[in-house]
Each structure stands twice: as C-alpha cells, then as structure tokens.
C-alpha cells in the first residue's frame, strides 16, 4: 500500500517537474518562435537623462540574430550580427566591420542594462537551468530556475512569474550565488501575435542602482516570417546597413 502511495507521489512530482519544463519551453517559444522579427524602441534612463534608440531585429532559433539600428540618426545603420556565439558590428560612419572580442561581450550593450552576452546566450534559459514550480495560483505560476551543475551561467537562480494563460512572464528576478537580488526584468502589455503571446513592454533594472533602467517597447513583432538567410551572413552587416 505504502509503495503505491510512494509511486503515486513520485509520479506527481515528475509530473510537476515536467510541467515546469513544459512551461519554460512554451515561454521560450513565445519569445522566439522559429524565427522572429521585431521593431523596437529602447529607452535608457541614465543619470537623469533619457536616451532613445530604435532598432530592427531579426533572429532565427537561438544561434543567429541580426540587429540594425535605425534611430537616432547619428547611429542609423549600425548593424550587429551574432552567429554561434560570435559577434560582429558594422559602423557605417567608419565603414568598418569589427569583431567584438570576448572581453567586450559582457559589457553593457550600448549603455543599457543588457549585456552583449544576454543577447548572444538567449538559449541559456532552457538549456542551462532546471525549472521548479514553487507556487501556483490560478493561472499564475512562479518558477524557480536553478542552474544545472556545470552550466556556464553566473546567476545563482532566476525566479519567473509566469501567466500560463499566455505563457509570458511578468517579472524575472535574477539572484547571485548568495541569493541576493541582482537585477530584474518586468514585462507588461502582452499582445497576441499569430499563435504567440508576447509582452510588448520590458523593463530591465539593477536591484541596487536607483534612477537607472532600460525600457524596451516592441513596436512591431512578426513570428515565423520567412527571414532570408542573407541576414545571417557577414556580408549582411554592410548590405543591410542602408
């Protein structure tokens, strides 16, 4: 008898673990689709000044992405290409393609709170973490992501607040190894695009630095649109800069 209970219990646990995996997978798919095109505005509040940038982003799966800056005019035409963990940048003003060396990858991206590394390692959330449901309330699920052993990630844990109606998160909190909060993402204004749901307002903020955050407004989102392979070649940097 007790054995049956035990088996049932294990089964339930497994189910819950599977459920967590399922939720994270869906969440990730929502963010990415097979491929995704976005036009977005990024606002950076920094020392009381707000700076705004607009860009177009094309990405396919987890390994390929192409970003073009379209605003402000002085930066118009700067392009970034990341392919398999490497990253290049083209600057029309100087007509040069520059490979970003590893040491620059972890620096803040264009003065925002997002690092180059965040952009390159998008896949990490599914591959490198073990999800666990810690609370369920109606459609709201709080999932804790603990890094898998030896996963090359710096966070001690990430806590996601997911709405299972849409499979989008409303808040991701990143913790360091000691369990102290380091930064958080806030997502709002979920929209349905095709078969996917996506929040169109994001906000990234360091937990212990006040008066400084990065906001992202998605102006256009298109999922699974055929994106030409031409975007994911080095020649694209220059070609699509104009």
């Amino acid at each position: 008898m007790s054995k049956i209970i035990l088996i049932a219990f294990v089964l339930i646990l497994n189910l819950r673990a599977d459920e967590a995996h399922e939720i994270i997978k869906k969440l990730d798919e929502n963010f990415r689709g097979k491929n995704i095109y976005m036009k977005l505005e990024m606002k950076i509040l920094f020392m009381g000044h707000e700076r705004s940038m607009k860009m177009q982003s094309y990405s396919q799966g987890t390994k390929k992405s192409f970003v073009k800056i379209i605003y402000p005019p002085k930066d118009d035409g700067i392009t970034f290409l990341s392919l398999d963990g490497e990253m290049w940048q083209y600057v029309p003003k100087i007509e040069r393609i520059i490979k970003i060396p590893p040491s620059m990858m972890l620096q803040k991206w264009m003065g925002s709170d997002i690092t180059n590394d965040d952009m390159v390692k998008q896949s990490s959330i599914v591959e490198d973490y073990e999800p666990k449901i810690i609370k369920k309330e109606g459609s709201l699920v709080i999932i804790e992501l603990l890094p898998k052993e030896n996963a090359p990630v710096v966070w001690g844990k990430i806590v996601l607040n997911i709405d299972t109606k849409t499979y989008t998160s409303s808040k991701d909190i990143f913790y360091d190894e000691e369990g102290k909060e380091v930064r958080y993402f806030i997502y709002e204004n979920v929209k349905k695009v095709g078969n996917y749901y996506i929040p169109t307002y994001w906000r990234v903020q360091s937990s212990d630095v006040e008066g400084r955050y990065t906001e992202i407004f998605l102006e256009e989102v298109e999922y699974d649109r055929e994106i030409s392979e031409e975007y994911f070649q080095k020649s694209a940097l220059k070609r699509f800069s104009k």
Binding site: F46, H49, R51, K74, D75, V91, R96, M110, G111
Partner: peptide
C-alpha cells in the same frame, strides 16, 4: 585604426 566605444552619455561612439 578604428575605434568603437561608448560616449559619455552612454551612446555609441565610433571613429577612425
């Protein structure tokens, strides 16, 4: 030599 970096307001800076 090409230079890229960020300007004092955090915006993008590049020059030759």
């Amino acid at each position: 030599v090409a230079f890229i970096g960020s300007a004092s307001d955090g915006s993008f800076a590049a020059d030759i």
